[in-house]
Design a protein around this nucleic acid. Structure first.
Lengths: 210, 210
DNA sequence: CTGAAACGATACCAATCTGTATCGTTCTGG
DNA sequence: CCAGAACGATACAGATTGGTATCGTTTCAG
């Protein structure tokens, strides 16, 4: 393995183990053993275990948000459909055999103090996820994009939490239906009137797998 | 302290610390120090730390479910209002200064293996909570009580998760409004027709604090 | 090609972890 | 009232924790 790849490989290994066992339960010795790396090497890249956790979460944060954006934006261009497509993305992550719940919620659950850097990193990730929903809700010209985004966000968190406990993917589809139902009655401003669209009223259709 | 109270006191102390710091991060030494009890005493009541965790979760499970039932049933007798009142109960727990997220979700997050007894205990608690929603949805004569219960449950989990990260109580009220919106369009069977009630249609009103 | 930096391996450290052993004291049921 | 159980205190065990020190080897940029 080339030296330039070691840091990334350590982050990947740490993320895998954190996801599998949790943060406290995953020891440094296990990480270096799984990564096939000496302990000195790890500590040359990361000052402390907390630093490793923070770097891993940062990496995951960017990966996750980019993956969702990519998935959603290549699926449809309609903002409302995109809001609904976020649940399809969620379903793919939940269906993963390695799924054990949201790593950021777990991180916040193991670092409950609001001033803890790990908690703050998790909190920041969730804030950015919410910001994306707001962006979509705004593009969809909903009258109250912030409220819509908060609702979508709440459904996401609920779906992931239920999926974490039950270990089935159904809650994500259920959440999508709920989102459809809720969005259908929401007011919208000047809905990019093409064709004979109504100016207000039902917004969701999404014939795929809902 | 009377000896008959020691076990309960240990469970209370352990629950407080588990809620504050998490399960792995809370050491036996801290628990006995906070409880003012010798280590031998703790291990005479609980064989292992895992046993202590399981006993603590069991206690909390019963307390929580009883508290919700009591809160909900003394507030209103209408089953639909009761479903909505569960969110008011949630709000009270989230507003607590000691709130740091759902202890069962945290427990499941730190014990991710589905065969882990701690995970199973958390899973069981959630199953029983869902069963209560089903009971209420059935009493409300919804056409699909299981689906309604799952939706309420998902909104609960979402509200608690968002509240855990943001440390504000608003998500519980938001979730209640979403529940109202969703229940309003749900079909119901023979709705205990007294007065001039419609037989199907909007179900929710709940003028308090929504 | 060469010197510095990064690497692997290993030994080590102090602290902490869960759990046990010992023993004198205190409570309590019969 | 008294035997026996439960208690507090403490010392200890063995494993594991996060992190450091040492040192010979490998990589890589200039």
């Amino acid at each position: 393995m080339r030296r330039s790849e070691i840091r990334g490989h350590l982050l990947d290994t740490a993320l895998r183990l954190f996801n599998q066992h949790g943060y406290h339960a995953t020891g440094i010795d296990l990480i270096i053993a799984e990564a096939g790396v000496a302990k000195t090497t790890l500590y040359r890249h990361f000052e402390t275990k907390e630093d490793l956790i923070l770097a891993a979460l940062e990496r995951r944060d960017e990966e996750d948000r980019l993956a969702m954006r990519t998935f959603v934006e290549q699926r449809t261009s309609d903002p409302v459909e995109r809001l609904l497509a976020t649940f399809d993305f969620l379903e793919t992550t939940v269906r993963d055999k390695q799924f054990r719940g949201c790593m950021f919620m777990s991180a916040a659950g193991e670092h409950k103090d609001t001033v803890d850097p790990v908690f703050r990193a998790s909190s920041m990730h969730k804030r950015l996820a919410l910001a994306y929903f707001e962006e979509l809700a705004h593009a969809a010209r909903f009258a109250e994009p912030k409220r819509i985004a908060a609702e979508i966000n709440l459904l996401h968190e609920g779906a992931v939490a239920v999926a974490q406990i039950t270990r089935i993917a159904e809650p994500t589809r259920h959440a999508k239906r709920m989102a459809q139902q809720l969005l259908a009655t929401e007011e919208r401003l000047t809905p990019a009137a093409r064709g004979g669209d109504k100016t207000v009223g039902p917004a969701a259709s999404s014939q795929n797998s809902a």
